[in-house]
Amino acid sequence: MNSYLIFSYAGVALCGIGVFGFIFHSHLIKRLIAFNILSNGVFLILVGLAQNAQKQPDHLPQALVLTGIVVAVAATALALVLIKQWYAISQQTTLPEDQEHQ
């Protein structure tokens, strides 16, 4: 049963990698990829920890993660549309304040 806990630790590691990428990358699409990794990490923790605590496959967090994945796709699509529009106008793939130490 403690295999659920192992996956929660995997979720924690994904969160760490996601946070690192989110803060480190100034390239907008890479920052968006890091955000997706972070959200996958949070979902792993949500299901892994809940099922470890309940000691059985718990349906509610799985439904929440389904909703979360769809919201994450919506966020990614919105960010990509904005990034492309930003690139079309300014020929930059990073935000203005991140450009100087490129």
Partner: peptide
């Protein structure tokens, strides 16, 4: 763009809190 990224990070923190509380 800046607002979207800040808000997404904020709601991920909130979701992490929900995961642990649940």
């Amino acid at each position: 763009l800046r607002y979207l990224f800040a808000a997404l990070l904020g709601s991920m923190g909130y979701l992490l809190g929900i995961a642990l509380l649940y």
